[in-house]
Amino acid sequence: MAKRSVPEINAGSTADIAFLLLIFFLVTTTMDVDTGITRKLPPPVEDNDEQADVKDRNVLKILVNSHDMLLVDGKPGNVSTLKDKAKDFMTVHFNNDQYPEVKEIVIEELGDKKIWVSKGIISLKNDRGTSYKMYINVQNELARAFNEMKEEASTEYYGVKYTQLVDDAKVKVINKIVPVRISEAEPEDRGGGL
């Protein structure tokens, strides 16, 4: 008797099965990349009296009211000029009362190099009626100011753009030289918003 061979399984439908799976995954999944502005919230303060005393000249006050209008350091401001103003404020100015105090920090990674940094803080306060869009615009402009300063510091000390720094230690050094100092005050309800 001749040896009976095992009949081959028909694999013609494998493609159809794979197609079904493929279409299922195409429908149920998304490919969108989430982008956004990352911020770190401060830990809650137990006591309001405990708030740190900061000298007036060290703070750039930015207020956004419920009509989405800006008040920068007591004067009406504009989003388009905000970046330059913030950058100018955070740059080191020696012996000038109009600008924040400066302090010297030592960067060990750069061979104990001494660098002057500004003690300035940007204080952002918004009303409950401020639109989210305006708030993001302001946050974006402030982020732009800091990013530009980081870029400048990076090209000065490492000769490459901040975004092209691959070494984590170098990124940390730049963040030490240009700390993102944005402080957000507790919100206030003045404009009768929601």
Partner: peptide, 27 residues
């Protein structure tokens, strides 16, 4: 984008209390 900051501020306060400090404003 049209939302007012009131509700966002409330959420931020709650997140602070819960210890979820890392946030991302999706844009």
């Amino acid at each position: 984008g049209k939302t007012t900051m009131g509700i966002v501020s409330d959420i931020k306060q709650e997140l602070r209390k819960s210890g979820a400090f890392k946030i991302n404003y999706s844009t």
